[in-house]
């Protein structure tokens, strides 16, 4: 398969902060890749490098075989602007026309807006759009120039369920027509619903890069929940939460945990063990980088120790 974009041993520093640490990644034609990682893991930095906004401190970033800093190479990509920054006084149609003017081929304003459910808003000023409409416009702009590769950074943040499904359909349709997508999201179900390949980054490194199923199998975390009072220290706990008298533990080895729990003599009831979701799987991969506190909200009754 043709490689559209490539990072080779890329390191990026901001002052003393190491945002990416010798990251290598190939984006091949026709892939739909989910990029996962906690805030500050390096996701945005990676996209900024591919989009030509930043240069690597060391290593090489290639886009269609050339440099992302070369405008001609960027003709083949689409990027989503942050919807908070869209020019308020411009009309929706004018913004699409303006962005389209940069590309040799384009979808056309009317068709693009219709595809993203904005057909009735072409004459509306951006300042008068709702948050969800702005978000859809921002995502639509990434597709304006008939790109081969789009970078969608949190495309559905702030959208209601229906709008999110519509957008997913749009992304799937683009992918089925041969388009390539690199997607980041806070909604892990979004990655599960769309992506075929998952790249997990944490602390500036690629922690996992495989198929969706393989990444889930690789970490193989389980959720163990039961009702109990105070607990002693337990082994292999990756995350913990207490709600309504029930304790919810994310563990790597549920058998060992249950053995230790029984051995401690603490009374408990209603034991449940189930496979972890992708969100939880991703947590186990990044937990070494202190991400536990980010995903599992700490509760006042939290008395459990982490392994």
């Amino acid at each position: 398969m043709t490689i559209l974009a490539q990072a080779i041993e890329v390191t990026r520093r901001y002052g003393d902060m190491l945002a990416l640490d010798r990251v290598s990644l190939d984006i091949r034609a026709g892939e739909l890749i989910g990029l996962l990682g906690p805030n500050g893991a390096g996701k945005s930095t990676l996209i900024n490098l591919f989009a030509g906004l930043r240069r690597p401190t060391s290593g090489t970033v290639k886009l269609f075989g050339g440099s992302p800093l070369d405008p001609a190479m960027r003709r083949g990509i689409g990027v989503t602007p942050q919807e908070t920054g869209l020019p308020e006084s411009l009309r929706v149609g004018e913004i699409v026309d303006f962005v389209s003017a940069h590309f040799r081929e384009c979808v056309g304003t009317a068709e693009l807006l219709a595809r993203f459910g904005l057909g009735d808003f072409a004459g509306r000023q951006v300042g008068g759009l709702s948050g969800g409409q702005r978000r859809r416009l921002a995502v639509a702009l990434a597709f304006a120039g008939r790109p081969r590769l789009v970078f969608l950074d949190e495309p559905t943040t702030g959208l209601d369920v229906e709008a999110r499904r519509t957008l997913w359909d749009g992304i799937r349709a683009f992918h089925q027509d041969g388009g390539t997508v690199l997607l980041t999201s806070h909604y892990l179900e979004e990655i599960e619903a769309l992506a075929e390949r998952v790249v997990v980054v944490g602390g500036g490194r690629v922690l996992a890069d495989d198929s969706m199923r393989a990444v889930r199998d690789m970490v193989d975390a389980r959720r163990v929940s039961f009702a109990a009072g105070e607990l002693p220290e337990l082994p292999g706990v990756l995350g913990a939460e207490r709600a309504n008298g029930r304790i919810d533990l994310l563990v790597s080895d549920p058998d060992r945990l249950v053995v230790e729990l029984v051995r401690s003599g603490v009374p408990f009831s209603g034991l449940e063990i189930r496979p972890a979701t992708l969100e939880e799987a991703f947590l186990t991969l990044t937990s070494k980088d202190a991400a536990v506190s980010g995903l599992i909200p700490s509760t006042p009754g939290r008395t459990l120790a982490h392994a």
Binding site: N48, L53, P71, M73, R74, P81, Q82, G85, L86, H102
Partner: peptide
């Protein structure tokens, strides 16, 4: 100060 500005730089123009 606006995020629109970095977005413009991702468009294929110098």
């Amino acid at each position: 100060e606006l995020p629109w500005n970095p977005y413009l730089r991702t468009l294929p123009a110098g």
